[in-house]
Design a protein around this nucleic acid. Structure first.
Lengths: 199, 199
DNA sequence: CAAATTTTCGACCGCGCGTTCTAAAAAGCG
DNA sequence: CGCTTTTTAGAACGCGCGGTCGAAAATTTG
């Protein structure tokens, strides 16, 4: 199976299943509570089966991260591409992130657990500041585009980008604290705040 | 020693020492890497000594949280109390938080580790959404005071409060990613952004 | 159907964890 | 000084972890 570059249909299904179980466990029991045994039990298999399909716990958790990003990125990028000017692109980005978070709180919370806790064998964090930096820099670019086009005001783009990303990262906690919150309402309010901050 | 309500001088020194070691370990090795053995090794004692003084690992980590908050709260509250009107109080709050974060990155990062990872015996998080809620609600109060006084604009106070707190919580990462950052500069820029967002 | 391959199970390994315990050392004290 | 209390070191505990292994089961293939 390692000899083949592509994964069989069954193999992909198994991986999806285990990623889903790991995602649930991360959300409910946190990083420390998400052992291979816990994931295997949710899937109803022996834990050696999980190792067989992923090779290691680290690979499983990286697959969780990749899986969530593969779902989020297209939705957000499509929204940005579909917007008119720089200002609209920024607001579309924020809105798309909020709406995604409203529907995918579990997934984002799980990714956060992995991001903050997964470490490589040498003891360093698997996902570093450089990874968050990519997201911040993207927002910073949107802001600078707006400033260059004269659509946005004169502010420190990097600082505002950090604040916007921090606000987005706080969304899973916001939605889980108050399940009655409507994604569209939060998107409106946060969009309004971002518009004020950048005008 | 349990019989006495107050702790002896030596006892308090030991506790301070172990809290400091735990704080360093949390910052450098993260929550999972901060075992009783790791803390004891930093302090140069047997791990049973740490247990002797704190009773359990959970109590030690709670002492870390209390210690940091005991340092931060007075500084921030004093700054807010010293400011004139509601608007100035809000900006003083933000500035004080940024300046504290600039000088206490390790401590805040350590508290964050405990906050997000420490769980009680039943598996639930030791520090819940209710704890963060207290901080958010405090900011929300500052915002509403400003709105009632006509000094701040018409925005959704809760949402903006969440965004401000999220931005503050992101500060340790910001400062550790770029050690050359000056606290006063960041305070100016973030204060400016908050002023825009709330005017 | 039989051989070959993929997948699963469950036992097992070494390790580090939080905690407990005992006995010795250190410190306080009349 | 001797007695008591506080503090320390270090061994031991049960446990769950990530990961390995060999054999059985299931599936694919000729």
């Amino acid at each position: 199976m390692r000899s083949d570059e592509e994964l069989s249909f069954i193999e992909r299904a198994r991986r999806r299943q285990f990623v889903e179980c790991a995602l649930d466990s991360l959300h409910e029991k946190g990083f420390a509570g998400t052992s291979l045994a816990a994931v295997a039990e949710r899937a109803g298999v022996a834990k050696s089966v999980v190792v067989y399909h992923f090779g290691s716990k680290q690979a499983l958790l990286e697959a969780v991260v990749d899986s969530v990003y593969a779902g989020a990125a297209p939705a957000v990028l499509a929204a940005v591409e579909g917007a008119g000017g720089p200002r609209e692109r920024l607001l579309a980005y924020v809105r798309a992130c909020v709406l995604f978070a409203a529907d995918n709180g579990r997934a984002l919370a799980a990714v956060g657990e992995v991001f903050r806790n997964l470490r490589t064998a040498d003891g360093g964090l698997r996902y570093t500041a450089a990874d968050s930096d990519a997201l911040i820099s993207y927002v910073e670019g949107l802001l600078e585009d707006g400033q260059d086009a004269g659509e946005l005001g004169d502010f420190h783009a990097r600082t505002v980008a950090v604040m916007i990303r921090a606000s987005i990262d706080a969304l899973p906690g916001l939605f889980s604290a108050d399940p009655d919150l409507q994604g569209a309402d939060v998107a409106d309010r946060m969009g309004d705040a971002v518009a004020r901050m950048t005008s």
